[in-house]
Amino acid sequence: MAAPLRRWRGGPLSRPRRGDPVTTAGAPAELAVAARELVKRYPGAEQPALDGLELEIFAGETFGLLGPNGAGKTTAISILATLLRPTTGSVRLFGLDPGRRCQEVRRLIGLVPQEIALYPRLTLAENLAYFGRLHGLAGAGLKTQVGDCLAMVGLEAQGGRLVEACSGGMKRRANLAAGLLHRPRLLFLDEPTVGIDAQSRNVIFENLARLKAEGMTLLYTTHYMEEARQLCDRIAIVDAGRVVALGAPAELLAAQPDCRDLEQLFLRLTGRHLRD
Results as ranks from 00 to 15, higher is better:
8 W>A: 13
10 G>H: 07
10 G>P: 10
11 G>L: 05
12 P>N: 05
15 R>Q: 13
19 G>Q: 05
32 A>M: 13
33 V>I: 15
39 V>H: 15
40 K>L: 13
42 Y>C: 15
44 G>F: 12
49 A>Q: 13
57 I>E: 08
60 G>V: 07
63 F>P: 06
65 L>Q: 08
66 L>S: 04
67 G>P: 00
71 A>D: 05
72 G>D: 13
74 T>P: 04
75 T>H: 11
76 A>G: 01
76 A>Y: 04
76 A>P: 07
77 I>K: 10
84 L>E: 09
85 R>I: 01
88 T>M: 06
89 G>W: 06
90 S>P: 06
97 D>W: 02
104 E>G: 06
114 Q>H: 02
119 Y>H: 10
126 E>R: 05
127 N>V: 01
139 G>N: 03
140 A>E: 07
141 G>L: 06
143 K>W: 03
152 M>L: 11
155 L>F: 03
158 Q>I: 01
161 R>F: 03
165 A>G: 11
165 A>N: 11
167 S>Y: 00
171 K>L: 05
175 N>W: 05
175 N>C: 02
176 L>E: 06
178 A>I: 05
185 R>S: 09
188 F>G: 09
188 F>S: 13
191 E>M: 15
196 I>F: 14
198 A>Q: 14
200 S>Y: 13
209 A>R: 14
210 R>W: 12
212 K>N: 12
213 A>L: 09
214 E>R: 12
214 E>Y: 11
215 G>R: 05
216 M>H: 12
218 L>R: 10
219 L>V: 13
220 Y>V: 07
220 Y>H: 12
222 T>S: 15
233 D>L: 07
237 I>Y: 01
241 G>T: 11
247 G>Y: 04
249 P>V: 01
253 L>P: 00
260 R>D: 03
